[in-house]
Computed example of a mutant assay.
Amino acid sequence: MIRYAALFGLSLTVAACSNEAGEPLDRAVFGNATTSNAAVMAGERDFAIQLATRFAEDVPTTINFAFDSAQLDAEARAILDQQAHWIRQFPEVRFRVYGHTDAVGSNSYNKTLGLRRARAAVSYLVSRGISRSRLQAVVSFGETQPLIPTSDRERRNRRTVTEVSGFLKRHPTVLDGKYAQIIYREYVESAVPRTTLTSERSLRTALE
Rank of each mutant, 00 (worst) to 15 (best):
G9S: 13
L10A: 14
L10F: 12
L10H: 10
S11R: 12
L12K: 09
L12V: 08
L12S: 06
T13P: 00
T13I: 11
T13F: 10
V14P: 10
V14I: 14
V14L: 14
C17M: 12
C17V: 03
S18Y: 04
N19P: 01
E20H: 08
E20P: 00
A21M: 08
G22C: 07
E23C: 08
P24K: 03
D26A: 08
D26W: 01
A28I: 07
V29H: 04
A33S: 10
T35C: 01
S36V: 14
S36I: 09
N37C: 10
N37V: 14
N37F: 13
A39E: 12
V40M: 14
V40R: 11
V40G: 02
V40Y: 12
M41S: 11
A42R: 15
R45N: 11
D46P: 04
D46R: 13
D46G: 13
Q50W: 05
Q50L: 15
L51V: 05
L51F: 05
A52P: 00
A52F: 03
A52E: 08
T53H: 09
T53W: 05
R54W: 02
A56Y: 03
A56C: 04
V59C: 06
V59S: 04
P60G: 01
P60V: 00
T61Q: 10
T61P: 00
T62A: 03
T62E: 09
I63V: 15
N64M: 09
F65R: 04
F67C: 05
S69R: 08
S69E: 06
S69D: 08
A70H: 13
A70G: 09
D73Q: 09
D73Y: 08
D73A: 05
A74L: 11
E75S: 11
E75Q: 13
E75C: 02
A76D: 07
A76R: 02
R77Q: 13
A78F: 02
A78E: 12
A78K: 09
I79S: 07
I79T: 15
I79E: 03
Q83K: 06
A84K: 04
H85L: 13
H85W: 11
W86P: 00
I87Y: 07
R88K: 15
R88L: 15
Q89F: 02
E92N: 07
E92A: 15
V93D: 04
F95P: 00
R96K: 12
R96C: 13
V97W: 01
V97L: 12
T101V: 04
D102V: 06
A103W: 00
A103Q: 14
V104K: 09
G105N: 05
G105W: 03
S106D: 11
S106Q: 06
N107D: 15
N107P: 04
S108C: 01
N110Y: 03
K111N: 10
T112D: 10
T112S: 10
L113A: 07
L113H: 01
G114C: 03
R117E: 04
R119H: 06
R119A: 05
A121M: 01
S123W: 00
Y124R: 05
R128G: 00
G129V: 06
I130Q: 01
S131G: 06
R132S: 14
S133A: 14
S133D: 15
R134E: 06
R134H: 10
R134S: 07
Q136V: 12
Q136C: 10
A137Q: 05
S140D: 01
S140W: 01
S140H: 01
G142Q: 05
E143Y: 01
T144C: 02
T144D: 09
P146V: 09
L147Y: 08
I148T: 11
P149D: 15
P149K: 14
P149Q: 13
S151P: 08
